[in-house]
Design a protein around this nucleic acid. Structure first.
Lengths: 358, 358
DNA sequence: AGGTACGGTGGGAGCGCTCCCATGTGTGAT
DNA sequence: ATCACACATGGGAGCGCTCCCACCGTACCT
């Protein structure tokens, strides 16, 4: 019979970082007590707490996340799922602003942010597996299309999740969206105020709910003003600059008498501006132009573009808050299938930023 | 004496996800064998491998990351440290392009990306603690200032790390940078080609190494062309639009005869353009303007801005590759202090994108 | 036939934490 | 003084994996 030696030398303590056990020894208490102090449990005497905190400080102790995750069945991390290169997410200014907002909301917590990329359906299914494999406590989804399988997979897995931009009026997941409807109405109202009456619109991809809502807002504003609907003033596009150019050409061909254009994104407005200029229409003298997003492009366009600002950063913050609340409301030890999630819906107001183009 | 019951019901298996043990039972093999298959060890027979893979597929098994991290002392995750809101990192187009590049490089691997935010020195020190606490296998640092304490902390901790943009000619950490020197030279050479001889420059913050190198390139180009150096044509700024305006005003006051301006960033070029226009100088007829970065601003400026393109996305990819190589070269079980890291330096070429402003 | 070598395999130990039960220890009620 | 009960505390068990050692069988040598 051989006496097994403990692993010495072979499997070295990595970097020599202190463990809970060592902190406990140093403070002259048990492991459980240190754990309680670290996790802010009230069931510790003041004396003991102070001793432990001193030991933690002296040793520079930082809990090992992996061990904690394994034992407690939570990761203190959330994932932001980024739909890869296609899609407008990497476009201005959505991406950095959302992340910025998420970062701000997370700053007050110990929660980490994981960025995951997935474009094709296959990848997104694989991703769902990972999400289910206890990698993260919850998921932030941005820029989801109506036919994306991921949200439904997540719904089925009972993973806490929040989407930005609802996919439809009846979004099953928790969501945060800006008020696209009222934003569009405000833009059209502003154009009325400038005396415009033949107002055209270039829409985004109408399978995106937000784009649909902007069109709804446009129509509602016209109808409230008592103007008859005129489909020759509506031209669908796809959120791209090229699409904006194409749509603008088409509108001018059909309705050379138009006196204003509401584009459902700044990028499309930029495309529209190029065509208007080529055809000798002055902005804003001949044609008023209004965009949507209030991106950097709007500020640097010539003339600077009036645009509907979405509170993107605030959306990021709010999404994170909703998600953290959902996570807190579930017990990590109960089976996923038994979880009851809140799935709250939040809509944030937009703001019209008036510049020289209108 | 009481017989302790195993935790049944109380601490439920979360979501009922299968474990290694269950896969092993299903495949009729031992735990170790399944582990070998999962990790692609060659020391498994073909028959056994097939049986295990079948069991994995049937059960939909996904390894638990936390358990793996704990046992293997690696996380299969890297961190991108984002210097918060101040700084030009969140500005166009650096942020999204770098992340995009990182994402591309990571797509072929199982490595996850963690985003960490830290602006103030205090936060950055705290961050170093976390990084050391086995949260990640390596660190990507972007937009570091010369006086940032974080890189040195990381250096001391022997954590694999790569910085974008060297801090000095003798960068101790591995780094990826674009060729700021040659980029600037190319811009000036282009202006010579347009017949310009009184070429001014607006510099970035000169405590940023890249800004210094752009200035060096400007000077080298003039000197090679046999022009005498003229400090009245050099005006320092700070990478902001406001700084660009201020510097441009100052340059025009000092040298009303200038016929070209090389701004060390597009944002500053945008500021300069405003002043040039206010003072009635036509671009490019009276004054040629060249920027740096080739951001979205450059494309949408009026006139579109000639600019030096940095291969930002490629930098992100290259940084990630370097980092993964560094991580692979160290044994996770050896003490940090014993690690020998490569610390390679990579410089990527820039490209001049000529548009109507020059 | 016996020895040696080696590919293939099973499973113990342990990673560092949380959870919870059992055991003190002090307080006030009886 | 005795009992009850709260609060504080210690430490066993276990989370799911990797690492490694011991062991098995077969092939190949002498």
């Amino acid at each position: 019979m051989t006496i097994r030696q403990p692993r010495v030398g072979g499997r070295a303590r990595s970097g020599g970082r202190p463990t809970l056990e060592e902190v406990a020894a140093r403070a002259g208490v048990g492991r459980g007590t240190v754990s309680r102090v670290i996790n802010g449990s009230p069931r510790v005497s003041e004396r003991t707490r102070a001793a432990v905190e001193a030991a933690v400080a002296e040793l520079g102790y930082v809990p090992n996340t992996a061990a904690r995750a394994l034992a407690a069945n939570r990761t203190d991390a959330i994932a932001l799922v980024v739909p890869e290169p296609e899609g407008r997410f990497f476009a201005e200014p959505y991406f950095s602003d959302i992340i910025h907002g998420v970062g701000v909301a997370l700053a007050e917590t110990e929660v980490q942010l994981l960025l995951t990329f997935a474009s094709k359906d296959r990848e997104r299914r694989r991703l769902a597996q990972y999400l289910a494999a206890q990698r993260v406590d919850g998921v932030l989804l941005v820029s989801v299309h109506a036919d994306d399988p991921l949200p439904d997979l997540i719904e089925d897995l009972h993973i806490p999740a929040v989407v930005s931009g609802r996919r439809s009026a009846s979004e099953p997941l928790a969501s945060v969206d800006s008020d696209n409807f009222e934003g569009a109405k405000a833009a059209i109202g502003h154009l009325f105020g400038r005396g415009r009456t033949r107002i055209a619109t270039i829409t985004g991809r109408l399978d995106v709910y937000g784009a649909q809502r902007r069109l709804d807002g446009y129509r509602a504003a016209l109808s409230e003003a008592g103007l008859e609907e005129d489909e020759s003033l509506v031209e669908p596009a796809d959120f791209t600059e090229e699409g904006g150019r194409r749509a603008m050409s088409e509108l001018l061909r059909r309705r050379p008498d138009l006196d204003a254009v509401f584009a459902a994104s700044d990028v499309m407005a930029s495309g529209a501006r190029q065509i208007l200029r080529e055809q000798g229409r002055r902005i804003p003298e001949d044609v008023s132009l209004v965009g949507f997003d209030d991106s950097a492009i709007a500020r640097h366009m010539d003339p600077p573009l009036t645009s509907v600002r979405q509170p993107i950063e605030e959306m990021g913050r709010e999404m994170t808050r909703l998600l953290l609340a959902e996570i807190a409301s579930v017990d990590a030890h109960q089976p996923r299938s038994a979880r009851q999630l809140t799935r709250e819906q939040v809509v944030l107001p937009t703001e019209l930023v008036v510049r020289a183009s209108s």
